[in-house]
């Protein structure tokens, strides 16, 4: 097959997230002046999205002749799209937790002020200084995960002792050591059972995780994405641990928020908040704090060491359920 022309090549590069400035310039000018270019772009972009969203491939897979011997793929944290696409393919009702979840349910709750209940969990000050245990937490109340350490904040302005967590290195998931090292993940397991009765009798409950990330690189460099994630599960945490991160798909509720930092503003904290409805069947939660690359899944592991997270807070906000008139 002959080499694609510059326009097609630019389209591919853009879809792969690696277009150069000149390729983007070419795309912009061609899409403006050339209707054929617009059609070509849309056809490739649509093909790319179909393949990315897996559904077509999943269907096609059943019809395909056997593939080449395929080694167990290095599993990565399953994309959020996989997580969300399934309910769409199944029943629309499944979206209640995903897209129509926390914020929307909250938006139509009654105007009574919420009741905020702190959730017992371990802050960085509750854990010994130094490297945190590796891999997925084996018990509740312990921060563990990829190489990171709890240190005293050298830049604490108040002069007070202040423990913060420093992301050191991206590492593959312990369950799949052959997988790619994409991001530095830190996790804590929270037992929700003691909270549930209290929460549910107060109406809708929203679990909220807040963390303050800081990127203390003095000069701008490769952008870093800081993510806050919450997963709620029912049943035995051991099952989640064994299959992490694939077990993300088994969560009864989940939420993810992130911010990005290019570096160069060491004094600027990035406050990230994530919330999800406390599903009645949830028994425990997994909190996940991540420092990773922006251009996943094709990015190289980020160089870490100057990225920190502090002031992690977990709260439960309860509010009277919406009136029947609003929710027929």
């Amino acid at each position: 097959m002959k080499q694609p022309d510059p326009l097609t090549q630019s389209i591919h590069a853009y879809l792969e997230g690696r277009a150069t400035d000149s390729e983007i310039d070419l795309l912009n000018s061609e899409l403006k002046r050339n209707p054929e270019a617009l059609d070509r772009y849309l056809q490739f972009a649509d093909l790319h999205s179909c393949l990315s969203l897996e559904e077509t491939l999943r269907t096609a897979e059943t019809d395909l002749p056997p593939l080449l011997p395929f080694p167990t793929p290095p599993p990565r944290p399953l994309s959020w799209i996989s997580w969300l696409a399934r309910p769409w393919m199944g029943a629309a009702a499944g979206l209640a937790v995903g897209l129509c979840g926390a914020s929307i349910a909250w938006a139509i709750a009654s105007p009574k002020p919420p009741r905020i209940i702190p959730v017992p969990f371990h802050t960085f000050a509750d854990q010994p200084m130094g490297h945190i245990p590796s891999s997925f937490p084996k018990t509740t109340g312990i921060w563990s995960g990829d190489p990171s350490e709890i240190v005293l904040d050298p830049e604490s302005k108040t002069g007070e002792r202040r423990e913060i967590l420093r992301f050191l290195r991206a590492e593959a998931d312990a369950a799949f050591p052959q997988g790619p090292a994409e991001a530095c993940d830190v996790l804590q397991l929270i037992d929700l059972r003691p909270l549930k009765a209290q929460a549910l009798e107060n109406g809708d409950s929203l679990l909220q995780l807040t963390a303050s990330f800081s990127d203390r690189r003095t000069e701008a460099g490769e952008p870093i994405r800081f993510s806050c994630r919450l997963f709620l599960y029912s049943g035995d945490p051991e099952h989640v641990r064994e299959r992490w991160p694939q077990s993300q798909l088994k969560a009864v509720a989940a939420a993810n928020t992130y911010c990005e930092s290019p570096g160069g503003s060491p004094q600027t904290p990035h406050l990230v908040t994530v919330k999800t409805v406390l599903a009645p069947q949830a028994d425990f939660a997994v909190l996940q704090l991540v420092a990773g690359p922006v251009f996943s899944p094709h990015a190289n592991p980020p160089v870490l060491g100057e990225q920190y997270v502090s002031d992690v807070k977990l709260t439960l906000r309860t509010q009277t359920a919406p009136s029947p008139a609003l929710n027929p």
């Binding site: 879809l15 792969e16 790319h48 959020w80 251009f295």
Partner: peptide, 17 residues
């Protein structure tokens, strides 16, 4: 909507967010 967003923002994670 997701397919639509992906025609302008091809990164799946970004589009999903």
């Amino acid at each position: 909507l997701l397919r639509y967003v992906m025609t302008i923002i091809p990164n799946v994670a970004d589009a999903q967010d």
